[in-house]
Simulated scan of single mutants.
Amino acid sequence: MVTTTATPPTGTRSSLLPLVVLSLCGFTSVTTELLPSGLLTRIAADLGTGIAGAGSLTSVYAAAIVLTVLPLTRFTLRVPRRVLFAAILSVFAAANVLVALSPTLPIAITGRVLAGVAHGLLWATMAPMVGRITSPARAPRAMAIVFAGTSLGLAAGTPLGTLLGQALGWRVAFLILGGVSAVLAVFAFLTIPKVSPDTKRPLSLARAARLPGVGLIIGGWAVMLLAHFAVLTYIAPFLEHAGLGDMVGAGLAILGIAGLAGVALAGRVPRRALFAGLLAAPTLIVAGLLGLGVLPVNLTAAVVLLSVWGAGYAAAAVFDQQVVLVVGHEAPDTVTSLSVVAIQLGIALGAALGGLTVEALGVAWIPVTGATFAAVSVALRMRLRRYLPRHHTPTTHRI
């Protein structure tokens, strides 16, 4: 990996457009990941399978990420970034079209596996790219721009895709998503800056994982995702239990909209206050989930507590990714790929934990379980202070 001290672009025009494109890449990937959830019954009926069979379109997506992101990240280290991003988005386009045209479930699963492979590689390489096209001082706002796409995918992309699927058919929704991905592939190739390919042997996975602070931030992020998805996976039955079954769709939108606000706030936190933000954001998750679990939940309380939870979650993701790049600056792509694997495992374990909570304690206890693990995430982060000096500025890497 070539390490340079060249100054990143100082003008906002030179770096804003690729950041917006990267944000749209995040939007597309999140929408692709979550779209089957809103159209599951229609997909199952059309493909001649049950709900569980159609649900495999989501599980194989996550499995593909976990199994391929580490080797693919290392294999593509020497590929110019603009070429790589264009290729990733082209795979997204082909995968979504394949799903849309699938006559049977196995073919649809093949398309979802391809999309999962592209998703993992995209997120393993996107955040390090942000660090290469912006200066350290602008990193918080740049990361906020990119992560806004994730929240927008949850707040608007998935609901809009679901509405399109319900009105025009689920295949049309996937075709449109494939077309958007193809257009983005062209924009990525035209806007992502030309940067040199890797010419230095990268750190091994084991050495990258042992870099000071890497295990703490990746572990803290994974536990936060575990807490988040333990509750999110069962948010519908929880709200129904609270007598708010009619606001399930609105509740998901509130999480996404509040997430956009959280991302915007995180982008305004100066780099010297990174540690404070790293602790404050997941503390909001604890507060929101604990409130849902122990307070009487009416419509007003639900809106407020969901907003606190959603803002904290989205902001925490921005801070976590910044810290990953700081402590893992010797091998940003490898460390980020490790975080992607940990995140997917956290999501899977979170869904399982939510199910166990429902079986053992009842649906009312799900937010309390989530709040407990979110507090564990805060505790892990508290040990990161030593690795985040106030004026730390990692060397810029270009690959």
Rank of each mutant, 00 (worst) to 15 (best):
T300W: 15
H241R: 13
G245N: 15
I218P: 00
L225S: 12
S204A: 07
D198Q: 12
V231Y: 01
L284H: 07
A209H: 02
D246M: 13
T233F: 00
L226H: 09
A287T: 15
V286G: 06
R268D: 02
L252N: 05
V318A: 10
G262Q: 09
G288A: 05
H241P: 03
V248K: 11
D198E: 11
Y313P: 05
G259P: 01
R201I: 09
L216K: 01
G310M: 06
P282K: 13
I235Y: 06
R201L: 08
E240R: 15
D246K: 15
L205M: 07
V214D: 02
A276Y: 10
G259K: 05
W309C: 07
Y234K: 00
L252M: 14
V263R: 05
L225T: 12
G293E: 02
A315Q: 14
I254R: 03
G251H: 08
V269E: 08
A287R: 04
V248A: 04
L252Y: 15
P270K: 08
L239G: 11
G291C: 07
D246L: 15
A266T: 12
A242H: 09
Y313C: 03
A311D: 13
G256H: 02
L226V: 13
I217P: 03
A208F: 02
A250Y: 12
L211S: 07
L292R: 13
A315M: 13
T199Y: 00
R210M: 05
L279P: 08
P202E: 04
A258Q: 02
L284F: 15
F229Q: 09
V318Q: 05
T283K: 10
V308Q: 08
A301R: 03
T283D: 11
A317N: 14
I218C: 02
L260M: 14
A280M: 11
L306I: 08
A273C: 01
M224N: 14
L265K: 01
A311Q: 12
V269Q: 10
A301N: 10
V297G: 01
A264Y: 13
G262V: 10
L203I: 06
A280D: 08
G288W: 09
P296G: 02
V231L: 04
F238R: 06
L255W: 01
A317W: 04
